[in-house]
């Protein structure tokens, strides 16, 4: 017996609305988590290279702790273990206003921040030491050297791996369904429950993830070209994606 596909389940009833809602939630949680991850990653990545041991140790602790524990555990941590630390009324307010979304966002952001951090560090360490010394010799302080010379170059160098990690972040956002965030995968399952059409629903989900990821990849390529430093990362300007 061959399976009879019935694609109409994807636009009849509430399916379209659910999918759209799922896409918006997935994009929302991923964008916010990405911003958090980029901020944490940049700071801790830079700290891992500074000539001051306690700061390096602090950043190393953050990275090793957060990247070596499974994301699922972090989801439960931010949803179940963090709220009890807050005062009662705030807890209740949070639970009524999308606590699961914020817990999921923090879990994703902090976890991927640790991974971003390693990329930033590798970017910084790939910059010749002489560059650092040259910047210092112009009279810049260490902080200024990082702020105006090292990090701007490092960020440009690591765009390809960051693009990679961003795609991972987007796809990992589906883990948030375990704490009842109604993102794209959740909505795909919902359609499956209502229509008993597993293949159609999963195909729709797959195609949407693929489209979102291709969109991000294209965007990252554009950014890479736009910010390329002539002469330094020269190959990029002419290379096809």
């Amino acid at each position: 017996m061959t399976y009879q596909f019935d694609w109409s389940v994807l636009w009849t009833g509430q399916s379209g609305e659910w999918l759209l809602q799922g896409i918006l939630t997935t994009l929302g949680i991923s964008t916010l988590a990405w911003l958090l991850a980029a901020a944490l990653g940049t700071v801790s990545g830079a700290l891992r290279t500074v000539p001051f041991a306690p700061l390096r140790a602090l950043a190393t602790c953050y990275v090793e702790f957060f990247r070596n524990v499974p994301l699922l555990v972090w989801m439960f941590f931010w949803y179940f273990a963090v709220p009890p630390l807050l005062p009662g009324p705030l807890q209740d307010w949070l639970f009524n206003h999308g606590a699961e979304f914020w817990a999921g966002m923090f879990a994703l952001g902090v976890y991927h921040g640790a991974r971003f951090s390693e990329m930033i560090r590798s970017g910084i360490q790939s910059i010749p030491k002489t560059q650092f010394e040259a910047a210092l010799s112009t009279g810049l302080t260490t902080a200024q050297t990082y702020r105006f010379v090292i990090i701007p170059i490092a960020l440009r160098l690591i765009i390809p791996p960051i693009a990679n990690e961003s795609l991972n972040l987007l796809k990992n956002s589906s883990v948030a369904l375990t704490i009842s965030v109604t993102e794209l995968t959740f909505q795909t399952r919902q359609i499956e429950t209502y229509t008993a059409r597993a293949f159609e629903a999963l195909t729709a989900g797959t195609v949407i993830y693929l489209a979102l990821c291709l969109g991000i990849a294209t965007l990252m390529t554009k950014i890479e070209r736009r910010f390329a430093l002539p002469g330094m990362i020269g190959r990029v300007a002419s290379a096809e994606h």
Binding site: F80, P83, P84, D92, A99, E100, T178, I179, T182, F186
Partner: peptide, 29 residues
């Protein structure tokens, strides 16, 4: 599904497994 249809004003949170749902209940989520 029934909750969504009969009590649309409830804030539904769907968990994939029973232990997570019970934990959320026990903690007040």
């Amino acid at each position: 599904r029934i909750i969504r249809e009969q009590a649309p004003k409830a804030q539904l949170r769907e968990f994939p497994d029973q232990p997570a749902a019970f934990q959320a209940l026990a903690q007040g989520q």
